[in-house]
Amino acid sequence: MEIVRNAALLVVDVQKGFEESGFWGPRNNPGADENIGALIDVWQGTGRPVVFVRHDSVRPESPLRPGQEGNDFKEYVAERRGRGAGGELLVTKTVNSAFFGTPDLDAWLRTEGVGQLVVAGIQTNMCVETTARMGGNLGYDVVVAYDATYTFDLAGPFGWHMGAEEVARASAVSLHGGGFARVVLTNEVVDAAR
């Protein structure tokens, strides 16, 4: 796998509010945070651009709404912001896709000459997947670091219920099999980016 010199890392919604298990329910992949941190470190250490995305929920019951501690980035992300040698951008959004945030992510990426995106963060099947799909639709070469994401159990129609691991796998199959993104493991990305 090739990770180009100016590939952008999109760190999606790694916020304290996702630690509220009473709100979200059971999650998968307890190693995701360590993998997200490793990706940020490699990107910053190699001077590549990093985009930090924050979800500012408009739902009054959400732990991610502005003004609540849950809206803040997790500590390991907050500590890394501003430390890289490459470009850095903060995007805030109220919907699933980072491409519908402020400032305009697509415009910034194109100004920076970025054509490849590596996506990591929370939730695999929500904001990570939606951002990856839109990136693919916009013509970017999108890579999703699967084990640098996580999600939660989910209820659907007809009384259907899926566990977090099954939800994450379905998301990965849809992204990869549908040609929206290459879904890989963090160590593959790290090795290629060094």
Rank of each mutant, 00 (worst) to 15 (best):
G139L: 13
V11F: 05
R59N: 09
A85H: 05
V77E: 13
A38M: 13
A98L: 00
D106L: 00
A32I: 14
E79T: 12
D104N: 13
V14M: 10
V77M: 15
L39K: 06
H176R: 00
F180R: 04
I40E: 08
S171H: 04
V4A: 15
P63C: 15
F180D: 14
R59S: 15
A32E: 15
V190T: 13
A193F: 12
W108S: 06
G47A: 04
T151Q: 05
R48S: 09
R81T: 05
G136W: 06
P103M: 00
A107C: 01
R5T: 12
G45P: 08
E166V: 07
E112K: 09
E75A: 13
F180C: 14
G163S: 05
R59P: 10
N35G: 11
F180K: 11
G163V: 02
W24L: 07
S21T: 12
L105S: 06
H176Q: 05
Y150P: 10
F99L: 08
R133L: 01
E2C: 00
R194D: 14
A164R: 01
L90P: 01
G135V: 04
S57M: 07
R54H: 14
D191I: 01
L64R: 01
Y146A: 15
G86P: 01
E19I: 04
V183M: 06
R48P: 08
Y76W: 13
P30V: 02
R65F: 08
V142Y: 05
G87L: 06
V11T: 07
L10H: 03
N6A: 10
A170M: 12
T151W: 02
K93E: 01
E129A: 10
E69N: 07
A192P: 02
T46Y: 15
A181I: 04
T131P: 09
E20W: 08
M1C: 10
R54A: 13
G82R: 05
E34T: 12
D104G: 02
E188Y: 09
N137D: 14
W43C: 05
Q116M: 06
V167A: 05
L138E: 11
F158L: 13
D191R: 04
T102I: 10
G47E: 04
G177P: 03
A78T: 08
R194M: 15
A132N: 07
L89F: 03
R80V: 05
V190Y: 13
E165D: 14
